[in-house]
């Protein structure tokens, strides 16, 4: 778990004990800065490698960075920065920072537009407002859409994003999904296609916080349409694909946490459309992240001064646990 203070903690499997990871670099902690995401190497069982994304730099020059290290208990060793978004910016917001390993061992990460630099999202040579794809050592794969550098930065995988806060790969379909915050309205879920343009800020379903159009264009040729968008914004946060055994009825569904509405959205693909179900409103807290554990349970991270990790279990397990508690 990444905390607002800039620390990262390792929670044990029982949820009872959390230890602060040692050895991590100091992140730039202000506003939306800090640590963003943590992911394990696909070969973690043998190499113990972890990857963390964080805000790096100073108020005048900061950006999203990926560091790689080896986890040894509660200590991260052999830390190496493997990628830093360029150019650096002077705003403490809109970092993106969600990571996802792809089946070929490459690592994708979302980056934000920095708020003040929205037009950068359309600049394929600028790494803000993108999904980028790198090798696990930080080098750039030769099959990226702009790998030759002639039409864009070689690391760019897709562009035209605002502040993507979710990224997940579906191994069954081979699809990569991302969602991103719109401004006022215009949160959207996208299917990420290499080299594709997702429109921001020239094409968007949202408007400025002032009420003015960001752009009068809601669609445009050559711009990918979202699979679903939310207006008003839900503050989409965290994205998980359910492929566990504990909830057979959830198989293949996407789960999205919401910061604004304080619930979790279950998204199911029905042909070309997406059906949406609102869950867990009883939590009543801003939802920062949603993950599926290796045990098939759904884990929900809340965002507050007393944030919680909530483990969602099927009714039969929950009842069994309750019975066990009573017997004890």
């Amino acid at each position: 778990m990444a905390l607002r203070s800039g620390q990262v903690q390792r929670l044990d499997a029982t949820g009872q004990s959390a230890r602060t990871l040692e050895g991590l670099p100091e992140s730039y902690v202000l506003s939306q800065g800090g640590y963003f995401d943590i992911t394990l190497d696909p070969k973690f069982a043998t190499n113990q490698r972890i990857y963390l994304s964080l805000a790096h730099g100073t108020p005048e020059a900061n950006g999203t960075r990926i560091v790689r290290g080896t986890l040894n208990g509660s200590r991260v060793e052999n830390l190496t920065p493997i990628f830093t978004v360029s150019p650096l910016k002077d705003t403490p917001v809109h970092y993106g920072g969600k990571m996802q390993f792809l089946p070929d061992g490459t690592l994708a990460m979302t980056t934000g537009d920095g708020f003040e630099y929205r037009e950068a999202a359309q600049d394929t040579f600028n790494l803000m407002g993108k999904v980028i794809r790198i090798n696990s050592d930080g080098s750039i794969p030769m099959d990226n859409p702009f790998a030759d550098g002639g039409q864009g930065h070689p690391a760019v995988w897709s562009y035209g994003h605002r502040n993507p806060q979710g990224l997940v790969f579906d191994p069954d379909t081979g699809e990569l999904y991302s969602h991103e915050h719109g401004a006022k309205g215009g949160d959207e879920l996208n299917r990420i296609i290499p080299g594709a343009n997702y429109g921001w800020p020239a094409v968007t379903k949202g408007v400025n916080y002032s009420g003015a159009y960001i752009s009068p264009l809601r669609t445009a040729p050559g711009v990918e349409e979202p699979l679903i968008f939310w207006d008003p914004s839900i503050g989409a946060s965290g994205l998980a694909l359910y492929q566990g055994d504990a909830f057979p009825q959830w198989q293949g569904a996407l789960f999205v946490g919401t910061l604004v509405d304080s619930d979790v959205r279950k998204l199911t693909f029905v042909g070309d459309s997406v059906s949406e179900e609102i869950l867990f409103t009883e939590i009543g807290e801003r939802i920062r992240d949603v993950r599926v554990g290796p045990d098939g349970m759904l884990y929900i991270l809340t965002d507050s001064d007393q944030g919680r990790v909530i483990r969602v279990v099927p009714d039969d397990l929950s009842n069994a646990a309750a019975s066990s508690d009573q017997e004890n």
């Binding site: 020239a202 094409v203 003015a212 752009s215």
Partner: peptide, 19 residues
Amino acid sequence: ALFISQGNIAAVTGLGFDV
């Protein structure tokens, strides 16, 4: 509001989109 509106559109057309 008029100036804001046109400023925003100028930014969009500056990105190569037709309005």
